[in-house]
């Protein structure tokens, strides 16, 4: 029945499903993170709203909706109001290129990885608009740091993501997934896989502005960074965008390194396996976040340009040499 529909209707249905899924997932990953962090800190975490705090994300969302929406008198109203939308759209769009199972996904582009990385770095436009439009000094310093950091870390992130791309010989995410079928996930590829995964994790944490690289938010220095003037649902949108970005990166990491939907059991379990792997990635990011102190902006930039970039570039060259010698995996 579904197969008989015209393609445009089909993709409209699919994108609505994915969008709903992502927004719901974001709400519940906040709960997951809070529970996980609470356990790390020998606390219980949200527990009051519903059994085991299960309705906490809904309560949070309702609270944000009911909050007064303040716009600072000195703010550039157009830019200020537009910024959360500009920020959240690319963060949600990245899910378009992720195939959740063979043939299930909004658009399995032949340049899927490239699309993902390009669109996800577009969030910087929204960030900058938020910081500039707020007309707040903390926000301005925050976005100044943001521009530096995101440009610096997108390069190593792209380099690290190119390792599985070269191993699979395709930029298409479903081809990369197929190359890993049969238990040979790219993280198991000797040396290259592990180094690539490590570089992807580090650059990923930095590109998502999470501790130890969360200098944009840096609430002990810049109060709340670029979102200091936002309240109510605009603040909610920014949070949604951030978490969607982290989740997107987790899904990408699971697709590139952890074998995507490959796993034991029947084929229809594929999306579940991908979901579990993405959650593992997410918890890895969370674990790093709640364990380390933040480092300074100049140190972050030094790590990127002096360490990450040359190393990932070297890794890429090494990968190409290996591939020339042994041929691609798929």
């Amino acid at each position: 029945m579904i197969a008989g529909l015209p393609p445009i209707v089909l993709s409209a249905i699919m994108s609505s499903v994915v969008l709903g899924f992502v927004v719901g997932l974001v709400a519940y990953t906040t709960l997951l993170e809070r529970k996980f962090a609470a356990r790390m800190q020998s606390r219980v975490g949200p527990y009051r709203v519903g059994p085991h705090g299960l309705f906490q994300p809904i309560a949070d969302g309702l609270k944000l909706l009911l909050k007064e929406d303040l716009i600072p008198a000195a703010a550039d109203r157009t830019v200020f109001n537009l910024a959360p939308v500009v920020f959240v759209v690319p963060c949600l769009m990245i899910f378009a290129s992720i195939p959740f199972a063979p043939g299930i996904g909004v658009a399995d582009l032949n340049i899927g990885v490239l699309f993902f990385l390009a669109v996800s770095s577009m969030e910087i436009v929204g960030l900058f608009m938020a910081g500039w439009g707020s007309n707040n000094k903390y926000a301005l310093i925050s976005v100044m740091r943001a521009v530096n950091q995101i440009i610096s870390y997108d390069l190593p992130l792209v380099m690290a993501a190119m390792v599985p791309v070269m191993l699979a010989g395709s930029l298409k995410l479903s081809d990369i997934a197929k190359a890993q079928e049969g238990g040979f996930w790219f993280i198991f590829y000797p040396v290259l896989g592990q180094l690539g995964f490590l570089a992807f994790m580090i650059a990923g944490v930095a590109a998502e502005n999470r501790t130890p690289f969360d200098i944009l938010e840096a609430e002990s220095e810049l109060v709340a960074g670029f979102r200091v003037e936002y309240s109510g649902m605009k603040f909610g949108l920014i949070q949604l965008g951030e978490y969607a970005h982290v989740l997107g990166t987790s899904f990408l990491g699971a697709s590139l390194f952890l074998g995507a939907w490959a796993g034991p059991g029947p084929v229809w379990l594929g999306p579940l396996w991908l979901f579990i792997k993405a959650m593992v990635m997410f918890l890895l990011f969370t674990w790093v976040r709640w364990s380390f102190l933040r480092i300074k902006v100049d140190q972050i930039l030094a790590v990127s340009w002096e360490l990450m970039l040359p190393l990932t570039l070297g890794l890429l060259i090494l990968t190409s040499i290996v591939i020339v010698m042994r041929g691609p995996v798929a």
Partner: peptide
Amino acid sequence: DMGGALGGGTSIFLY
């Protein structure tokens, strides 16, 4: 102060 209210700093703070 150094680790952030949403980061490793909170862990040490709570300990």
